[in-house]
């Protein structure tokens, strides 16, 4: 009914201005991605004349060949994939497991546990204490520094708890009567009934691990353990990096300009996100809404 009335209304000048503004917003959003894409595809002699704004007059995939032969970028890519998959899986399972225990009212010591967990939301050690802890635990400069400290967050646990509580108690009780253990209930009843929440939390964790460059800067010295984004940071921004080091990183380039190689590595790091984005974006919005209701 309402929609009908709306479509009957005539389009006024303001509507056209509005559409124009929105198209401009879309342009501003998409253009940066477009820019790295076309510049990574520019043929060497086109790229050497300077950055391409719209479309290169000659195309070439040379930069990608260089990128995929570059040991720094390949190892970074593998570390990033490994880190994203492992850290996300462990985070979701561990946080959900703790949340399941915490969501049961008859858990002895529940109030105390909750208090212990609450305090971690308001107070945290910060950069230096965490750094010292990683050194003392022997996690510094190991792959596990990406995984173990990211196993749990209070915030995600609260989200899990509130969803676990929507599952009817009778379902859990009848499983118990059938002799199911708590682990079976958690695995076979709770998790399959909370797929949407799991997807949302996993996506946020996954995107974080894929995009994070800073952990790698702080905790990893071994170059072969650095995630792709950290490698990119070193390649693109770090002023302390000598041109010699940068050249070593781009050494295989041959005639391909280093700028093109940089763009190609940026595309390689962005494409996975762009590819899954259309499929995941509805979960991402859902995630914000969960957060907004909770917060």
């Amino acid at each position: 009914m309402k929609a009908k009335i709306k479509t009957k209304r005539k389009y006024k000048l303001f509507d056209y201005v509005l559409i124009l503004i929105m198209l401009l917003v879309c342009f501003l959003t998409i253009y940066p991605m477009w820019y790295i894409l076309v510049n990574s595809l520019a043929a060497p002699d086109v790229a050497s004349l300077g950055a391409v704004a719209w479309w290169p007059s000659a195309l070439s995939l040379d930069a990608y060949k260089v990128v995929f032969q570059n040991e720094y970028i390949v190892s970074g890519f593998l570390v990033t994939i490994g880190r994203t998959v492992l850290a996300t899986t462990i985070h979701v399972l561990f946080t959900a497991m703790v949340a399941y225990g915490m969501s049961r009212n008859h858990l002895i010591g529940r109030k105390l546990y909750m208090k212990i967990a609450m305090i971690t939301m308001f107070f945290n050690g910060g950069l230096i204490p965490n750094f010292i802890l990683m050194l003392k635990l022997g996690l510094y400069d190991t792959f596990w520094v990406f995984i173990i400290p990211a196993m749990y967050t209070f915030y995600d646990m609260i989200i899990f708890i509130s969803f676990f509580r929507t599952i009817p108690e009778s379902l859990i009780e009848s499983a118990k009567i059938d002799g199911a253990s708590e682990y079976t209930i958690f695995w076979k009843i709770l998790l399959p009934n909370c797929k949407a929440v799991i997807a949302t939390i996993a996506l946020f964790a996954g995107v974080y691990h894929w995009n994070d460059y800073y952990q790698g800067v702080i905790y990893i010295r071994d170059r072969s353990l650095q995630p792709l984004q950290t490698i990119l940071y070193k390649l693109l921004a770090e002023s302390s990096m000598t041109t010699q080091q940068q050249q070593a990183m781009l050494a295989l380039g041959g005639s391909t300009p280093s700028a093109t190689i940089k763009f190609a590595s940026m595309v390689v790091a962005t494409l996975p996100i762009l590819f899954i984005y259309p499929f995941i974006q509805k979960y991402l919005v859902k995630g914000v809404m969960i957060g907004a209701i909770k917060g």
Partner: peptide
């Protein structure tokens, strides 16, 4: 959802 390492 684009990392600062790339956007930057």
């Amino acid at each position: 959802f684009i990392s600062w390492a790339i956007f930057g």
